[in-house]
Each structure stands twice: as structure tokens, then as C-alpha cells.
Simulated assay, not measured.
Amino acid sequence: MRHRATLLTVVTALLATTAFLAVDRAADRAADRERPHTGQPAIQRGELDLRRPGRLVFRSLAWGPQRDRLATVPLTAPGGPRTAAPRDCLRFHAAAGTGICLRKKSGVIPGHEAVLLDARGRAVRHFPVPGIPTRARVSPSGRLVAWTVFVSGDSYAGGAFSTRTAVYDTRTGTLHDTLEDFTVLVNGRRHQAVDHNFWGVTFAADDNTYYATLGTGGRTYLVRGDLARRSLTTVRENAECPSLSPDGTRIAFKKRIRPQGADAPWRLYVLDLRSGRETPLAERASVDDQALWLDGRTLLYALPGDFGADLWSVPANGGGHPRKEVASAVSPAVTGPVSASAPAGTAASRGSTAR
């Protein structure tokens, strides 16, 4: 009996020690998540103001408890400390105090949703979406919002994917839940096909004209849309993820320069809508993103990084060099009016440096 009692005491002590070590290690892991990792930006908690001028808003990918939250930095110091708001998004964009957030939806049946945000980042309306978020845009006035999701597949590179793109009018409450219902003209002729896929909407200032990508028959087209007429017309072939410049005269896009499945298949270009001239940009890495006009002279886009992605900038005239602007970030938007010139302190005004 004494031996059994001694054995029971030893076993109990071992179990208690094991439990203590497990709890201690768990606490260390939790504390590690709270601490910023080496090279990660300092983050403080705060509120979101989509009308405050001179700010860059994005989904923060910095490791820790604020990962995937919307964060802001001054345009004059994009690489500095960031302020994170209590709003999780996978894809995001904003303009004129209106935001659109594509996020995971919790519940008994998990999924995704598009959330319309007011200037303070508060949810105004929720829309269920039938797939994985990939693109989001708001018109310059804040009236129109668009989003794209993958209905099947998870990469453009695979060649077999399906998208669904919706446009919502915040003023009238009209939801166009898929652009596939619109009339499509390819080279001036009406085109009907079961494989129509649209993605990457960008809006003009008139809240009627927009541009997007059409994929059909193994080809991609830049298309110009007329929301009132519910129509889309091809502009040119091999142009994806368009982004209209602040003055409405140029479109940044990614152009496929290598076959599907090849490494580095895309390169950033800028199209002059008046002359039809294409200008390749100085960024030589493959950019699988819908670039953002940081101002009238500079583009911002995501490239793969240590914690998911980083934001880089490059001049829109084909000169200069790429420059990393924000580490551990994706899906950016500029608050306040977007200037046709570069604000003091931004990449364009500082002058880019080589990677």
C-alpha cells in the first residue's frame, strides 16, 4: 500500500508538472502573437475615418492580433506605424466616405459576404456572395460599389475558373448581382457564350461608365460598360484588372506576356485611352493585382512578401524604379480626393529607388 501511495504521488506530480508546462507554453505562444515580430511595423488600435484626407487604408497582414484588420497610415509616411480598426476584411476599397469590405461570414454555414461601410467603418448593408473574394472597387463619388468573387477555382493561372461580379448603386438601392446578364459586344458584334466571366471593375467619375475584364474563349478583353444601358463593349484584347486614372484618361492594367502556367506571366502597363498607346512600367515582377492610382503619377500594387504581400509603387510613365511602400499589406485605398500630382512625401515626390 505504501508503494502504491508513493507511485500515485509521483504520477500526480508528473501530471501536474505536464499540465503546468502546457499552460506555460500556451501562454508563451499567446504572448508571442501579441509581440511584433522582427521587421514588423508598430501597430496601435484606433478608429477608422474614410473621409480623413491624406491617409492610406489597407488590409494589414502584419503578424499578431491585428492581422487582417483594416489599418491606416499617412500618405507622407506609408512605412511608419499604423493604426488598426476593429474591422476584418479580405478585400477592401473606399472612396468619398464609402467603403466595401469582402469578408468571411461566420455562422452555422460558413461563407463570405460583401459589407457596405459608412465613413466610420460601420456596416450599412450586408450582401451574401457565392464564392471567394478577389476584387473590390468604389466609384470616385462613393455612389457605386463593385465586387468580384471566384465561384470555383482559386487562381487565374489554372485557366479553369468562374467569377461573379456585382455592382450596387447606393443611391437607388439597385443591385446588379452579375454582369453576365448584360449585353456584350465583341468587336462590334453581339456576343453570347456560357463562359463569360467578368472581374476587376473600375469606375469613371460619371457614375455610369466603368471598365472591367471579360474572359471568354480562352481570351481576355478590356471592356467598357454602360450601367444605364446594361451593356459592355470590348476595347482591346489582353488587358486584365483595369484601374482608371484620377483624370479618366489612362488605364493601368496587367498584360499577359507569357502563356498560362508559365512563371511571371503578367506585366503592368498603362493605356492612354485617347491615343491607344500602351506603356510598359518599370516593374518587371509578375503583378497579379488590380493596381491603385496612389496619385496621378504613381501606381500602388501588391507583390508576394514574407507575411503574405507587400505594397509597392512605380511611376505610371514607364520610368523610375519600383519601391516598397508598405510591408505586410494588401488591398489599399486612398482617403480624400486623389490628386493628379504627387503629394509631398509620397513615393513619386521622393523619387523611387531601385529594388
Results as ranks from 00 to 15, higher is better:
V11W: 10
A19C: 12
A19I: 12
A22V: 10
A26F: 02
A27E: 13
A30C: 00
A31I: 03
E34G: 12
P36W: 04
L48T: 04
G54C: 12
R55L: 13
P65E: 13
Q66E: 11
D68G: 03
D68Q: 06
R69P: 03
P81I: 05
A85E: 00
R87A: 01
R91Y: 09
A94S: 14
K105H: 00
I109C: 04
A123E: 10
T134Q: 12
R135M: 07
V138S: 08
W147G: 09
F150G: 00
S155P: 02
Y156P: 01
Y156N: 02
A160R: 14
H176N: 14
L179K: 11
V186K: 15
Q192P: 03
Q192N: 11
N197A: 14
A204K: 04
Y210R: 03
L214R: 06
L227V: 01
A228Y: 03
L232N: 09
R236I: 11
N238K: 05
I257K: 08
Y269Q: 14
Y269V: 07
V270I: 09
P280H: 09
E283F: 06
D295R: 07
L299H: 00
L300W: 08
L303N: 05
F307S: 11
F307W: 11
A309I: 09
G319C: 06
R323Y: 09
A333K: 05
A333S: 10
P337L: 07
V338F: 11
V338G: 10
G345R: 02
G345M: 02
T346E: 08
